[in-house]
Amino acid sequence: MAKVIVVTSGKGGVGKTTSSAAIGTGLAMSGAKTVIIDFDIGLRNLDLIMGCERRVVYDLINVINGEANLQQALVKDKRISDLFIMPASQTRNKDALTKEGVEKVIHDLKADGFEYIICDSPAGIEQGAMMALYFADEAVVTTNPEVSSVRDSDRITGMLSSKSYRSEQQLTPVKVHLLITRYCPERVEKEEMLSIDDIDDLLGIDLLGVIPESQDVLNASNLGEPVILNQDCDAGKAYQDAVDRLMGIERDLRFVTYEKKGFLSRIFGG
């Protein structure tokens, strides 16, 4: 049974596209045919993060308007065989996304055998964001341990439970997961940053994963390689854990506690 998963947040710049790229890539690595759709019409960026920007010919709006078919618009990933990207249009505006159009694209992707359809939402709560979440079966709410991000995550969680197809049709509600990104255990230890428990208390959403603040994320985007492909770094491992949990495999939380440097390692380095 195909699953539509929206990666959303309300607030911008918290890591939606980075997380969409990592999660989509991780799911495809498990052998499931996966597509990541960029819903950020006019400000597409998923292609850059995935490193396929030079191979984009047609886009989501072309498909909705019947100017191209699915196969023409899907960009096949060169590293993972079951992974595809559906780019957003860079020239149209967000109103080009119609409910009927998006519904047809998702329907056709399912018919084409896609098991996971990842919808990378734009920031905000306007047309693009609402269309990205409307057909979702599950949602990954990306949140930074910071006041404005937490507030916006709460708001978008409300939208998921009132403005989605599942809510309107009174089906089983969208399954909402919390993904905390840019987490800094050292600052949490110093009580300078909201902790996992604080965010959990405030939002009351099931925790899918915690991605530590990491220089490797910027490196990965510089290279156009989803950070999950770098399994030597903490952020890559943390994303892999999150993907495993999304597929129902239990994984303990990692990289969430601050190890104070001991006396010896302070002297000798470690």
Binding site: E192, L194, D198
Partner: peptide
Amino acid sequence: KGSAKLAK
């Protein structure tokens, strides 16, 4: 001295 409590 942390400000996290106030944020919460």
